[in-house]
């Protein structure tokens, strides 16, 4: 508890630790790559260097967050976890569905899942929006720009 009281910027501490973790992970992954010589740097040279640099910068950020007093430092604030997960899920659903099942199914999945992310869920609005977006995107991307999308599942051809 006493440590917590001394943290002036939880944002900086968390960010700093994140940078340290990414830096270390980079170095670990890159240690397997050839380092090369001074005349011919290998592919591993820069990643290791940068990983170390990132870890050091991260440590500095974290230490500053603990030690340096900043007036009205911002708290991290509440995380919008539900929107975060659902928006990511909607995008991933589109990615997985668009090739096997076509643009229509993928669009509907995206609209339904993302609409669950925030505000009131209205079935009527979701249906209307899905229809409008399928029509609009088919008109722009398939018929005007000629992108190679299937509108319907491949089996229907």
């Amino acid at each position: 508890m006493s440590l917590r009281a001394r943290i002036h910027s939880p944002q900086d501490v968390a960010a700093g630790l994140l940078f340290v973790a990414i830096g270390i992970a980079t170095v670990v992954a890159a240690l397997d790559y050839p380092m090369g010589t001074v005349r011919r740097f290998g592919p591993g040279y820069f990643p290791v260097l940068l990983g170390v640099l990132l870890a050091l910068l991260g440590a500095a950020v974290a230490i500053k967050g603990i030690a340096v007093r900043i007036e009205d430092a911002e708290p991290i604030g509440p995380w919008a976890l539900r929107p975060l997960i659902l928006i990511a899920a909607a995008v991933i659903a589109f990615a997985l569905l668009v090739r096997p099942l076509g643009l229509t199914v993928a669009t509907v999945a995206l609209v339904v899942i993302s609409s669950l992310a925030g505000g009131r869920f209205s079935l009527k609005r979701v249906i209307a929006l899905s229809v409008a977006l399928v029509a609009l995107s088919a008109a722009i991307f398939i018929f005007t720009l000629g992108l190679p999308f299937n509108l319907w599942p491949a089996l229907w051809n």
Binding site: R99, P100, A154, L155
Partner: peptide
């Protein structure tokens, strides 16, 4: 994903 695609393609 590719299994899915292959399944669909095999059906076709």
């Amino acid at each position: 994903r590719s299994n899915w695609a292959m399944l669909a393609a095999a059906a076709v």
